[in-house]
Amino acid sequence: MQAATTPRAGSALVPEHPLEDLIRSDRIPHIWCPGCGIGTAFAATLTAMKSSGIDLHKTCMVSGIGCSGRAAGYVKLDSFHTTHGRAIPFATGLKLGNPELNVVVFSGDGDLFAIGGNHFIHAARRNMDLTVICLNNLNYGMTGGQVAATTPHLARTTTTPSGNPDAPFNLPLLAWASGATYVARWTVLHTRELTESIQKAITKSGFSFIEVLGPCPINYGRRNREKALQTLKLYRERTIIRNHADPSDLDVDFTKQVILGEFVDKERPTCIENYDKTCRLPE
């Protein structure tokens, strides 16, 4: 046995896990399956929160419902696990109620883009000062692997047993068209780029959106003959980083090539700035 496993982490001799102070360690291990990408994206979010230098006491995480929606339950910050699809409007109220707060929405593709799709486009249109991180695992994991608004055409899920007849959303294109001021996409394998992106998004004002592709080996992978490690290898072999790519080229199709990178980074007055300027009487 290696010396590395003794003495115990957190003892006087061994420093704790670098994120120990930001997780509710009494709730770990979390509910996510072996190989699930949510934990990695969640850890990247916490790392970015720490390294960004923002006041963590003024930082909140809001989640909706689903596997990714459980993220709020593991972060040792003010955290809100809301109703299905409604993380963004809840976060909107939180931010408007106290503009000093840094509000990070962490949720899944089903939550943010099917049941909550309307809220996403409107928050982006208003340029609400939120950082929205979407863990896209291509299906509804919590309920056992049903087709989502992001499931690739012809992919098998429990509700598309002969393959998905529909086309998926191109999420960065949707975010771009709705007016988001920061848009990026990474996979959980591209952890460093992802962390940098999240850090940038948190410190930037306005509506930021980061799509994170992560495997759902149990519910999506199993039905589409993809083991967790194989999915990560696809992320390595079938992706290309192309910053500022044309948003209409950003379809997720791993039979071809998937473009990652930072696609939008622009400035626009935020919802609160516009409200103060337009609606409040001059002092």
Partner: peptide, 30 residues
């Protein structure tokens, strides 16, 4: 806005009440 408060017209009633709950946790009466 005259009283230092905030009005927002949300995209539907679901968003409207969700925003009120968020504001309540930000310390406001909503």
């Amino acid at each position: 806005p005259q009283l230092g408060g905030t009005f927002i017209q949300m995209e539907d009633e679901i968003a409207a009440i969700a925003s009120v709950l968020g504001a309540a946790w930000a310390g406001q009466k909503g």
